[in-house]
Nucleic acid binder design. Sequence first.
DNA 1: TTGAAAGCGCTAACAC
DNA 2: GTGTTAGCGCTTTCAA
Lengths: 346, 346
Amino acid sequence: MPHRTTIDDVARLANVHKATVSRALNAQTQHQVSRDTVDRIRAAAEQLGYVPNIMARGLRTRSSMTIGVVIPDLTNPFFPPIVRGIENFLAPRGYTALLANTDGHPAAERSALASLLERRVDGLIVASGQRDETALADARESGVLAIMVNRDAGSVPYPLVTGNDASGIAAAVAHLVELGHRDLLHIAGPANFSTSTARRAAFEAACRSHRGVRCRVVGAAALSVEAGRLAADEILAERRGRPTGIIAGNDLIALGVLRSLRAHGLDCPGDISLVGFNDMAFAEDFAPPLTTVRVPTLDMGTEAARLLLAAIATGTQEPVTVTLPVSLIVRGSTGPVPDDAHRSVT
Amino acid sequence: MPHRTTIDDVARLANVHKATVSRALNAQTQHQVSRDTVDRIRAAAEQLGYVPNIMARGLRTRSSMTIGVVIPDLTNPFFPPIVRGIENFLAPRGYTALLANTDGHPAAERSALASLLERRVDGLIVASGQRDETALADARESGVLAIMVNRDAGSVPYPLVTGNDASGIAAAVAHLVELGHRDLLHIAGPANFSTSTARRAAFEAACRSHRGVRCRVVGAAALSVEAGRLAADEILAERRGRPTGIIAGNDLIALGVLRSLRAHGLDCPGDISLVGFNDMAFAEDFAPPLTTVRVPTLDMGTEAARLLLAAIATGTQEPVTVTLPVSLIVRGSTGPVPDDAHRSVT
DNA sequence: TTGAAAGCGCTAACAC
DNA sequence: GTGTTAGCGCTTTCAA
């Protein structure tokens, strides 16, 4: 690539030493240079179209002004808002995000992390947390600064920014109970995600807190539409004990449930009510519009970026957990329990 | 950040000069080093957890092994698959993507570009093309390699990877005509996007090629749900001359049309048929499932990355246009023209 | 096959 | 206020 012009070229044109150019062009050191020379240097830089080389600077200052963002899959609608929130915070502060997808594969995560570390990112924001994080454990071991987003890293004590899973699930359960539902099912995500186990536990606790509510939990193989459909298929194949209300581990699973319901000729919410989790983009446009728990994904990203830059500034980080509030968004996929709901269980 | 261990540390442990370490650890120069020393160096590097510093290497080799990806908004579901396609191609080749959002603002684009250029990206992939690209013109002027994706950069002659807008629109028109529709409307995107004008022209041409088809074009203020809804609201407010078939400039606009239709108590496709463009994620889950033109977004990203790396390898690029095939996906939002369709125009 | 030396473009200590 | 000097960690001639 081009951009040949270096700090030396500017120095020559402005008739000063390159160190002076460096001072003049840097906000923190600019006051050390006289007004006149700053102007002269500015003009020279402008004239030459000088673009400072951040790599060279970084070599000296041991900072790359880039942050590694590792996510499972950008194509999953849950993650773009997080990334956007991160960038919204980083960009005005001179930082840029290096993106890496892992697809949930440990091998891909390893190589993604390696690639980011080679580039000497100043820190990591990781949205692909799992129970068994070996690669992250190594990173943490060698002093890499990082913030987890949404899911934690198992036993690796990185700070975490997450939504309030418990209160979201509690609100969903309360909503269904209020509508008269007494047979509730939770389709949980894989247990190696901290959010899955948190939501599952919250579901069971919430059900216990309402008298007369029968609850049941099944697991989905992944946080995906297909996994949700499969799980729902199995449940709907059973002739007795069908739930009247389902709380899905996330919106993708909920979408799978919706497809399964249609395939079985069941009406939502006429026959079965459904609540999702996350309020992903366009959840309101589904058929029916999905009742779900809204998670502030953009804010989660922003907050994670804020925490990371703070950690970079101090060089240290405590394993805090920042829990952001969530809210139940009631739309068309939940309704009153059908009259004959109890036929199947008696 | 940590990772203190440098090539010198490895050299010392392996009892060789750092130049030898460099050769041993580099695939292209490895054959210059004896088998034994390579092994010894490898072991030493492993033992020390050596991670080469790409910035330092880049300073020397004038290549950063990073590609700048500039998009309007990651939160728009059209872009993540493109980015994913890019990364799928880049990652195995040792490149990483630096992401920058512009929100369609020239100012944001300027600063995004500046930030990428400071980081000495080896090239750019730009999905935020507009008619009046001043920042890109400068980049092009100073020899920056770049590939446009989806939309071109107006008069800036960068190569372009795009979907076949004309054939997609032609297929959509043919589909509606076959269903009996004779009054067609195209809600076009803003004219400063090359795709908007291409689709508009294709629409008008396609309509002319079918005898007895009346066509009309209105513009949406943006490629967004809200802009689509507004445009549809205006059309539906007219009491006469309503179209029976609408082809939206993209799926987001189509979604806005859907919402407007619902608000007006109109049935889709009972009263009006609707075709989108792009086949964005979950278009099949809308109410009704959206008939749309599928654009191979993932492939577009991959192809753009391929072209860019080729350009980087040769140091030159021709202003070629790669047009990828698209296909009409017929779902529930299109149906036979209603019987009374001609009442309103007579 | 390996070592020595130079330098990529920048900033930071130290002079003056 | 400004110049000098010395590297940051790497690759790449050029010698040996």
